[in-house]
């Protein structure tokens, strides 16, 4: 976020001994955006953005406030429709898509400002993530018996596994509106995980958290990536976190692509340093 965090998170020792993540090999492309431009009225939010996300990697999108990071996620999951450009996901090119269609193809996300269903319990919130997988129609559900009950229980078991994974057993039946911020973020991650996503988009999963909560969240993200092999794209302001956990980083500034590469490459990039430190053009 600031120059200080950028530098603090870049001890020279780390670049000599690369993290295990950096040694992993990603070849298969999961998602590719090409020449994306998006504007609202006259305001240009994104200009000619191209990058790709490969299977099983953790891909960070960074940049100053207003750089277009959230807009980029909104484009990927179909909430915004770019005027120009194509998105290729799992080999299929598309220019427009509704959010629920994106969900069907395995894209899940969390939000910068938590978007949970405040009137429902933690359990119900995470259960909503299973909705797409539930096949019985409402007539069966009206009976709550036989196949409908069996289906309900199957999904309950999946959801309970997620609750165990995220260590939120104690708040299972609490309405999420009453939970503290950090736990709400965790429940939101749980809801996204319940969708069994192939691509998980996380919008500032650690904003407003204290160090301990951040460490927990990092652990969850790495575990999800490791255990389930989920591809993750995340927006984060904490450079220490970004440099630690991501495999490759995209840097946006004023809606343009500034740099794209491994954490080390990005850190060494002069343009990125200028954007973060500010530079006197002489």
């Amino acid at each position: 976020m600031t120059a200080a965090t950028l530098e603090r998170s870049a001890p020279p020792a780390q670049s000599e001994a690369p993290t295990p993540n950096a040694r992993r090999n990603f070849s298969e492309e999961l998602l590719k955006v090409e020449d994306i431009s998006l504007s609202f009225g006259g305001v240009k939010a994104l200009t000619n953005i191209s990058f790709d996300i490969r299977k099983h990697e953790i891909r960070a999108i960074i940049g100053p406030n207003g750089a277009g990071k959230s807009s980029m996620l909104n484009v990927i999951n179909g909430f915004y429709h770019p005027q120009v450009g194509t998105i290729t996901y799992k080999g299929q090119a598309r220019s427009q898509m509704r959010p629920h269609e994106a969900a069907k193809t395995g894209i899940a996300r969390t939000f910068q400002n938590i978007a949970l269903f405040k009137g429902m319990s933690t359990l119900d919130n995470i259960m909503t993530g299973r909705l797409l997988k539930m096949r019985r129609n409402f007539l069966w559900q009206a009976l709550y018996w036989g196949p409908a009950l069996k289906e309900e229980l199957e999904h309950r078991e999946k959801v309970e596994a997620i609750i165990d994974f995220l260590e939120i057993q104690a708040i299972r039946k609490t309405p999420v509106g009453r939970l503290p911020y950090g736990l709400q973020k965790r429940v939101e991650l749980g809801r996204a995980l319940a969708m069994d996503p192939e691509l998980l988009l996380l919008d500032e999963p650690m904003a407003g958290m204290n160090v301990e909560e951040k460490e927990d969240m990092c652990r969850f993200i790495l575990d999800v990536n490791d255990e389930f092999g989920t591809t993750i794209a995340l927006i984060e302001h904490d450079m220490g976190v970004v440099m630690d956990i991501s495999d490759r980083v995209v840097v946006l500034d004023y809606g343009r692509l500034l740099a794209d590469g491994t954490p080390d490459e990005v850190r060494a990039n002069q343009q990125v340093i200028d954007a973060y430190l500010g530079v006197s053009h002489d």
């Binding site: 629920h100 069907k104 939000f111 978007a115 269903f117 119900d124 909503t128």
Partner: peptide, 24 residues
Amino acid sequence: RSAIGRAWMAIRDMDIAAEIIGIR
């Protein structure tokens, strides 16, 4: 208390988020 009820409440509490998790 089943899936359809949760979909309704999701729409009620936050329709945009509901659409993003796949509720039409």
